[in-house]
């Protein structure tokens, strides 16, 4: 992984976290905000494949786990986003993905990411949350992520595509 690509990815993730926490905070619907970090990981996975996406997901997750408003046991988002990166990277289409594919992938990724996080919470008995509550959060976050996809994914994918090894340096 080239240094430029790493720096760009880190900046994208940090920006996503700040936007997610500060800008979408007042707009939250039932407290749920769009998971921009997850969208960054999906964009990375769709353009650059599982290896890049796994590292990106791990880093983004660790940032989500440790940066200020977080209070849960660290490593839970890292695990969730790492798996999202791996899965999306494995199932990504060979050619340039169509709009429908991207939306479907984001929906799947959002479901998998939030579920893995919730399940890790159940295993570690970190927060005590009911099943109904968990499902409603899952549904709302899925809707949020899909709604934001047309605005977030195309520029991010273009960015990551421009950082192909051939153009990188």
């Amino acid at each position: 992984m080239s240094a430029v690509r790493g720096v760009v990815a880190a900046v994208a993730v940090a920006l996503a976290l700040v936007l997610q926490v500060s800008v979408f905070g007042p707009l939250a619907w039932e407290g749920v905000v769009p998971n921009l970090c997850l969208l960054v990981v999906v964009a990375g996975a769709l353009t650059r494949g599982p290896q890049f996406a796994m590292v990106l997901g791990f880093g983004a997750g660790l940032l989500l786990d440790l940066a200020p408003p977080a209070d849960h046991v660290a490593g839970r988002w890292a695990l969730a986003l790492l798996l999202v990166g791996y899965l999306v990277g494995r199932v990504r289409p060979e050619s340039r993905p169509t709009a429908t594919t991207v939306v479907a992938t984001v929906a799947g990724a959002s479901f998998v990411g939030t579920s893995v996080f919730a399940l890790s919470g159940v295993l570690l008995s970190d927060p005590v949350v009911g099943v109904g509550e968990t499902l409603s959060v899952l549904a709302v976050s899925l809707v949020w992520d899909v709604l934001l996809t047309p605005f977030v994914l195309p520029p991010l994918m273009a960015l990551f595509r421009r950082l192909e090894p051939a153009h990188a340096l």
Partner: peptide, 9 residues
Amino acid sequence: GVGPAQSFS
């Protein structure tokens, strides 16, 4: 900053 509800805290 507001923590997302996806983190369940």
